[in-house]
Design a protein around this nucleic acid. Structure first.
Length: 196
DNA sequence: CTGGTCAAAGTGGCTC
DNA sequence: GAGCCACTTTGACCAG
């Protein structure tokens, strides 16, 4: 097994020039001031010799590429059109952005992961809200049960059993006295469950 | 200086 | 074996 990964050619030795400032004056908001460095790090062409250099001797610290805003924008555009690339598209994009196909591939992988994470977070938020709603509904139903039990203890207070109805499918008892509860319970359920 | 965050890249397992 | 994904590492940057 190789000591270094196949794509260690991006261990860009050329950027660590003594005296070179990696923090030029910021021209953008948060995260700004990276543009110059990014350009230098991304600069092509790289050669096979560079790769050989990386494989020889002791491993230098991996230098991190930062994409330029333009590169990111084009990648985002491309991602919007398609979340995956075929080898030809990857090659073309790499050529256009002056990056290696591997970098395009990695960017798309990470972008898909971020996209999925965002989706999961949104679903999590939705489920939290739903849980809150169900908890609230559960409390109301418990109170209703207590009320019904109280009525059973004192049957004289129950005017007629016909005011209680049982849903044949979910076997839920509803009373004519609490239509709002039935309505709110219905509201809390997702559409699929409601179609009933 | 330190800890947190973000994103590029490495790694290993899985699928086709 | 290539491509993808989940997980992890790592470097750059920023705020306190």
């Amino acid at each position: 097994m190789a000591i270094l990964p196949e794509n260690s050619s991006n261990l860009d030795l050329t950027i660590s020039v003594p005296g070179f400032s990696s923090s030029p004056p910021s021209d953008e908001g948060s995260g700004g001031g990276r543009e110059q460095l990014k350009l230098d790090m991304n600069r092509l062409p790289w050669s096979e010799d560079d790769e050989e250099l990386c494989h020889g001797g002791s491993a230098p610290p991996r230098k991190k590429l930062r994409l330029t805003r333009e590169q990111s924008r084009l990648l985002e555009d491309s991602f919007r059109q398609n979340h995956t690339l075929n080898p030809k598209q990857k090659e073309a994009l790499a050529k256009h952005l002056m990056l290696r196909p591997r970098q395009i591939e990695v960017w798309f992988q990470n972008r898909r992961a971020r996209s999925k994470l965002k989706q999961t977070e949104m679903e999590c938020e939705y489920l939290k809200r739903w849980f809150g709603s169900l908890t609230e509904q559960n409390h109301r139903l418990h109170r209703e049960v207590e009320e019904l039990r109280a009525m059973k203890v004192a049957p004289s207070t129950v005017t007629s059993t016909s005011s209680l109805t049982m849903c044949p499918r979910c076997e839920r008892v509803t009373t004519a006295a609490s239509p709002s509860m039935a309505a709110s319970a219905k509201k809390a359920l997702p559409l699929k469950e409601r179609e009933h």
